[in-house]
C-alpha cells in the first residue's frame, strides 16, 4: 500500500514513516504543507494520504478538498491534535476517510489504517 505523509513537522513525518514502513506500508512521498501535498498527490498517486491539519501556506482541510475534488475515491486520513474537534468535523464533511488523534502510538496508527488495506 502506497502512502503519502503530509505534516509540517519533519519529526512527525519520520515517526509516521518509521511506523508505517515497519508494518509493510510503502511510504512513497512526504509533503510539508497542503500545496505540496496536492502536487505530490498528482505525481505519485498514493493509495492513502495521512494529512496533518494545521500547516503553513495551505492547511490540511484545503488540501483534502482539493484532493477529493481531483480524485473522489482518494483515501485521506486526517491527523489531528486533541481539541480540534470542529476542524475534524469539517474534514469529515469534506470527505476525509477517517482521522487519527495525536499523540498516537504505533499500534493505534496501524490498527486504524489497516481498515484501508
Amino acid at each position: 500500500m502506497k502512502v503519502l505523509i503530509v505534516d509540517d513537522a519533519v519529526f512527525i513525518r519520520l515517526t509516521l514513516k518509521a511506523m508505517l514502513e515497519k508494518n509493510g506500508y510503502q511510504v512513497i512521498g512526504e509533503a510539508a504543507n497542503g500545496s505540496e501535498a496536492i502536487l505530490k498527490y498528482n505525481q505519485l498517486k498514493p493509495d492513502l494520504v495521512t494529512m496533518d491539519i494545521t500547516m503553513p501556506q495551505m492547511d490540511g482541510i484545503a488540501a483534502l478538498k482539493a484532493i477529493k475534488k481531483m480524485d473522489p475515491s482518494g483515501k485521506v486520513v486526517m491527523i489531528s491534535a486533541m481539541g480540534q474537534e470542529s476542524t475534524v468535523k469539517e474534514a469529515i464533511i469534506a470527505g476525509a476517510n477517517g482521522f487519527i488523534v495525536k499523540p498516537f502510538v504505533e499500534d493505534q496508527v496501524i490498527r486504524g489504517l489497516s481498515k484501508f488495506k
Binding site: E36, Q57, A62, K69, I93
Partner: peptide, 22 residues
C-alpha cells in the same frame, strides 16, 4: 448538503500556484 466545493477554476489556480512555489 455539502457546501463549499472547490470549483474547477479555483482548483487549477491552486495547482498552478503550487507548482510555482515548489
Amino acid at each position: 448538503v455539502l457546501d463549499d466545493p472547490i470549483t474547477n477554476e479555483a482548483m487549477n489556480s491552486i495547482v498552478k500556484e503550487v507548482e510555482q512555489q515548489t
